[in-house]
């Protein structure tokens, strides 16, 4: 067992981090939040050039030929800088939709009754027979200034067939983005607690604040282990676990960060609200409760014990489809 980043993986993470810092730093983030949402096509193509979308595509098909762990590291970095856009949908479309792999096409996907970045996308996937593009999709005033949303009319009932269940890879990459957001929240909170002074000392010296920061880190580290572990095994219960804990780390982390920031946290100017709003926007499919149940069913139900032991070694072929099987017959 060597459950640490390899040298190549560290280099890949650092490379992505460096590109993103150059192209989408805090200044660009604030500027983007202050104007109507528009996708930066040049940045999108730069991501394509860097192999962000073609990361898992085989080299024989013009891709980078890497795996889930590397994709998770890249999406964690994207989440950390709150990079806007339908990144996961485009990544998943690489090799299927012309132009997606290179960043020439922007692909979004229907998520239950909503779709993000609809007007900016070149291709909209999913949505069954609802004919999204020309239909009466209604623009929302999205809570997140960097995630424009449309609501779809006549969304089918929640208990739709297997088609309505998301790709487990999409679930895992969302978890990776949430992990990145949680990391950002922790970094912001700690930086502020070190420098902001009250009562003649940095507020991070007060245990009430210090302990909030410590819990932020604990949630990040637990989520990180879960997300990276799921990337290695691709086991459905591991993916459900990763998503659950990464969501918690991001949402609670951003809330705690906001609290550490005090009055500044309640302003538009400080970027904390953008971290929280992005965390809220993560696709809530197939729903938190069902995620927990799938996590449960895949491993602990007495009748599934055999299946669980078979998949914990991570080499069960087609294991990723198990989350589908385990969510379509809920109690």
């Amino acid at each position: 067992m060597r459950f640490q980043l390899s040298g190549d993986q560290r280099a890949l993470r650092d490379g992505v981090r460096e590109v993103l810092a150059r192209r989408f730093g805090p200044r660009e983030l604030r500027a983007a939040a202050d104007r109507p949402p528009a996708l930066d096509r040049a940045l999108w193509r730069a991501l394509g050039d860097a192999g962000f979308f073609a990361l898992r595509l085989p080299e024989s098909e013009g891709g980078v030929g890497l795996g889930l762990p590397e994709a998770v590291l890249a999406f964690e970095e994207a989440g950390r800088v709150l990079l806007p856009g339908p990144l996961i949908a485009t990544h998943l479309a690489a090799g299927r939709v012309p132009g997606a792999a290179t960043g020439e096409a922007v692909v979004t996907a229907v998520d239950g009754g909503r779709v993000e970045w609809l007007t900016e996308a070149d291709v909209v996937e999913g949505g069954g027979g609802r004919g999204v593009a020309g239909s009466g999709a209604v623009a929302l005033r999205s809570v997140d200034p960097l995630t424009p949303l449309h609501r779809l009319p006549a969304a089918p009932a929640v208990s739709a067939g297997p088609e309505a269940v998301p790709d487990p890879v999409a679930v895992l990459l969302t978890a990776a983005e949430q992990l990145g957001g949680a990391t950002r929240a922790c970094e912001l909170a700690v930086q502020h607690a070190r420098t902001r002074e009250q009562f003649g000392q940095p507020i991070g010296g007060f245990q009430a604040v210090k302990h909030l920061c410590a819990e932020l880190l604990v949630r990040v580290e637990v989520a990180r282990a879960a997300v990276y572990g799921a990337a290695v095994t691709a086991d459905p219960a591991d993916i459900a676990t990763a998503r659950l804990l990464a969501d918690e780390a991001a949402v609670r982390g951003a809330r705690d960060c906001l609290q550490v920031y005090g009055g500044m946290g309640f302003t538009w100017e400080a970027e904390v609200h953008l971290v929280l709003k992005r965390a809220w926007c993560a696709p809530d499919v197939p729903g938190a409760a069902r995620r927990v149940r799938s996590c449960w069913r895949a491993s602990c139900c007495p009748e599934r014990v055999a299946g669980a032991s078979a998949c914990t070694d991570g080499r069960r072929p087609g294991g990723v489809s198990m989350i589908v099987a385990s969510t379509d017959h809920t109690a």
Binding site: V222, A223, A225, A226, G229, A240, V292, C295, C300
Partner: peptide
């Protein structure tokens, strides 16, 4: 209750991964 049990399942799975990490 099922939700609580599922939440704990995720918790201990993640803790095992953290131990490995």
């Amino acid at each position: 209750l099922r939700r609580r049990l599922g939440r704990l399942n995720a918790e201990f799975r993640a803790l095992w991964r953290l131990a490995q990490w």
